[in-house]
Nucleic acid binder design. Structure first.
Length: 489
RNA sequence: CGGGGCGUAGCUUAGCCCGGUAGAGCGCCUGCUUCGGGAGCAGGAGGUCGCAGGUUCAAAUCCUGUCGCCCCGACCA
């Protein structure tokens, strides 16, 4: 075995490990255009599972899908002051079309608030037209300086929810509700525990009243902002004249929310669960749940094991079954590759379960079932598969979440620490540090400058420490908030 | 945009200092033997050495310019 078949290890160089893994597991590849990536079938398969689950959750919470255009008149962006300041520097702008200079330049959407609320303004006259609960699946472009596969690319895929409401409280409720949807998705599907909370002013969305986020801990103890939900207040409604007549006959501006998650989550999945052998995909998001590796010596054995494998695959994965009863099975029929090589192949790609079927198993009508997450191996009878696989898959899903949660907790610091100690931690292994903050943005900026750590959020009540910190970690002044500090992606 | 590094086969690279027939490993193709943890042997395909100039009898190698990429910073879902 030569060394170049092995991945760099996480301990050696987490960043190299991540890049190599994404490329070698065939999730994605670099494109000819700097900062852009090609999402390959394996990676897109994960994204599709994410989309499907989230889309169902959006529908179940009353939202409808629509599609708004890629191009936005440049003037739209300028209508909301903070918004233009935040996004203008990273916009791609179309200046020519059909060989002619455009009268008004077109911005390639970095996000769609402006175009969507301008349309909402056309459609809303009365309080009876509200709420509007829209979502769109789209690509957006942000001209990033430094890019990383999945984590930050110039073009990325996402969904953006946009809603309009009669009252502030209703919008706030929606903002919180969708943050909860994200959290549920990340924990139940990605097996990635998150801390939810409020962003400080310096980290909030350009143009929002308040931004909430889901923050997850990667295996290098850095935080990944995995999803955001914004209460936009009336800022965009005022900019785009989105108003309605109230029940009392007066005129009022609508209250908006927007919320989004992106293909960045695929990167989060990799950095939450991957190990030195490759990806570990969760049973709910993996394109293939069980890979069957036939083992044989002779042509006859090959025919017999593959026949058995296909019969099992057809039975478990039949399209005639409803989706939730279907198990996604793949038979690795490739010739000229030894079983061991196939094991490495599928382990690299993170397939949760492997079923080995060889000549010895044929007579017994059984196979060897191996878990990717724990490497645990046990024999299983073919006629037990239909009943047992869903249980094992759910067990893997649960175990992965528990393991990720344990890891996060092991690298979380809640006891009172000095700022000097904090600097040591951030310069070393890193951690999630809960500490008091006096509420001063200057303190936040100073810590960022000195340690590269930022306030990830002011955590929601359930994540706060049992005994609230009373003083600011940096200044020693009375603490206004308990905040979560970490270095982030 | 500042600081550093690198462009040689699909990938990783040797050769460059000191100019003289472009080499290896992996991968790929064919055949035989293999096959329960990354197979072995034999044969084979694949390169205008990033690009453009210059010096020279002769340039992957020296000089100039240029383009691109990577890493570290400032900006970020």
């Amino acid at each position: 075995m030569s060394d170049d078949k092995k991945l760099p290890t996480r301990a050696e160089n987490f960043s190299d490990w991540y890049n190599e893994l994404v490329l070698r597991s065939e999730l994605a590849d670099y494109s000819p255009v700097r900062g852009c990536m090609v999402i390959r079938p394996h990676g897109y398969g994960v994204w599709e599972r994410m989309q499907r689950a989230l889309d169902d959750m959006f529908k179940a919470t009353g939202h409808v899908n629509a599609y708004f255009p890629l191009f936005i008149p440049e003037s739209f962006l300028s209508k909301e002051a903070e918004h233009v300041e935040g996004f203008a520097p990273e916009c791609a702008v179309v200046t020519h079309g059909g060989g002619k200079l455009l009268e008004e330049r077109l911005v390639v959407r970095p996000t769609s608030e402006t175009i969507i609320y301008s349309m909402f303004a056309k459609w809303v006259q009365s309080y009876r037209d509200l709420p509007l609960l829209y979502n769109q699946w789209a690509n957006v472009v942000r001209w990033e300086m430094r890019t990383r596969l999945f984590l930050r690319t110039m073009e990325f895929l996402w969904q953006e929810g946009h809603t309009a409401h009669v009252t502030h409280d209703e919008a706030e409720h929606e903002t919180r509700k969708m943050l909860g949807v994200y959290r549920t998705f990340m924990e139940a599907y990605m097996a990635m525990p998150v801390i939810t909370g409020l962003k400080t002013d310096s980290e909030k969305f350009a143009g929002a009243l308040r931004t909430y986020s889901c923050e997850a801990m990667m295996q290098d103890n850095k935080a990944l902002q995995a999803g955001t939900s914004h209460n936009l207040g009336q800022n965009f409604a005022k900019a785009f004249d989105l108003k309605f007549q109230t029940e009392q006959g007066t005129e009022a501006f609508a209250w908006n929310t927007s919320w989004g998650v992106s293909t960045r989550m695929v990167g989060g999945l990799v950095m939450t669960h991957g190990d030195d052998a490759g990806l570990r995909l969760t049973p709910k998001l993996t394109p293939i749940q069980v890979v069957i590796v036939p083992i044989y010596k002779t042509d006859d054995e090959r025919a017999a094991t593959i026949e058995a494998a296909k019969r099992i695959s057809d039975e478990l994965g039949s399209f005639t079954r409803p989706d939730h009863e279907r198990i996604r099975v793949h038979v690795d029929e490739r010739v000229g590759i030894k079983p061991g090589a196939k094991y490495y192949h599928w382990e690299l790609r993170g397939i949760p379960l492997r079923l080995e079927i060889g000549p010895r198993d044929l007579a017994a009508a059984s196979g060897m079932l191996v878990r990717r997450d724990t490497r645990e191996k046990r024999p299983i009878a073919w006629d037990a598969l239909r009943a047992e696989l869903p249980i094992v898959l759910q067990q893997i899903q649960d175990d992965m979440l528990a393991a990720a949660r344990a890891r996060m907790e092991a690298h979380t610091i809640r006891e009172r620490i000095s700022y000097d100690r904090f600097k040591e931690i951030m310069a070393g292994d890193g951690a999630f540090v809960y500490a008091g903050w006096n509420g001063d943005p200057a303190v936040e900026a100073r810590v960022k400058e000195e340690t590269k750590a930022t306030i990830r959020c002011i955590p929601d009540a359930e994540f706060r420490s049992q005994v609230a910190p009373t003083t600011c970690m940096v200044t020693g002044e009375p603490a206004k908030f308990e905040v979560l500090w970490a270095r982030s992606y």
